[in-house]
Write a protein that binds this DNA or RNA. Structure first.
Lengths: 147, 147
DNA sequence: ATAGACCTTAGAGCATACTCTAAGGCAACC
DNA sequence: GGTTGCCTTAGAGTATGCTCTAAGGTCTAT
């Protein structure tokens, strides 16, 4: 019934190396060992691992994931702490998503410029302006001679 | 008119260290030096630096940003390459945003559980199930005795 | 009983992106 | 001319998260 590390890795999409690294880092204190000292992942373990991967995929650091797992291992008395941790993370992720969306808008603006039929001319004009900046300041001009 | 590295750092929000690191990494070939060998950032340089920061903030790697800057330094003949690079990046960022949103949904699900008035009971039930997984597989139970 | 595929650990190595230190040059003011 | 504050470089150090190697134990089938 339980999965070997190889099977668990295949199921969750992480490498065996990464699973061992996570275990060493204190993220998998719940994974039991069989009589030979081999890790044995149960379905319940895979569910918790899934949560760990969600936290990782949203950018949570190993240290913070460990804190979450420690709350889980401490039982239902830590529900408030878990809620606070996840809420804080949720807001941080949302804020980062918004920031990325903002930056992406500017990249889209650049992209629109490059997609314009007159792109070459527009770019050449930008370049000429940058070039003049240098001349006006009596600085060597890295853009000189570029079209 | 041009900005010292200190002024440029203050304006763009990066540290002086980071600006020097970027220069060393080939991201700032356009920044000129004054008679004393000091970097002199023009307004045109700041605009390009802004683009670099947008790319960085959306997770582009230094190596790829350098490629983009090399296209810029090669003039308007590289418009097609720049467009391709930005489009590819744009799609990668969008895909990652979607992936994060997916993972966030699962975290929200967990959060809803913790926000339930019956949270402690629900969590205790999860825990009991995980505990039974271990028992059924004749494995040491890390959850034993936790409420 | 031996080959092969699996597992274990400790610890080294790597990639990325900074971050800082050391040693020293330049420029302005008292 | 000395102090102060800015700048330069090379290169070392840090943080994070893997990724891999070496040495060795276990299990299964032939």
């Amino acid at each position: 019934m339980p999965y070997s590390i190889k099977a668990a890795a295949a199921r969750c999409g992480l490498s065996e190396y990464t699973l061992r690294y996570y275990d060493k880092a204190g993220l998998l204190p719940f994974v039991a060992r069989d009589a030979s000292g081999y890790r044995a992942f149960t379905d319940g373990d895979m569910a918790l691992l899934h949560t760990i991967i969600c936290l990782k995929n949203t950018g949570m650091r190993i240290d913070d994931i460990r804190t979450y797992i420690q709350y889980v291992m401490a039982g239902s008395s830590t529900v408030a702490e878990r809620r606070a941790l996840l809420q804080k993370h949720r807001e941080a992720v949302a804020a980062k998503q918004r920031a990325i969306a903002e930056n992406l808008k500017e990249i889209d603006y650049k992209l629109a410029l490059y997609e314009d039929p007159q792109a070459a001319q527009l770019v050449a004009r930008e370049l000429a302006a940058a070039s003049q900046d240098k001349q006006a300041a009596n600085l060597p001009d890295a853009f000189a001679g570029i079209h």
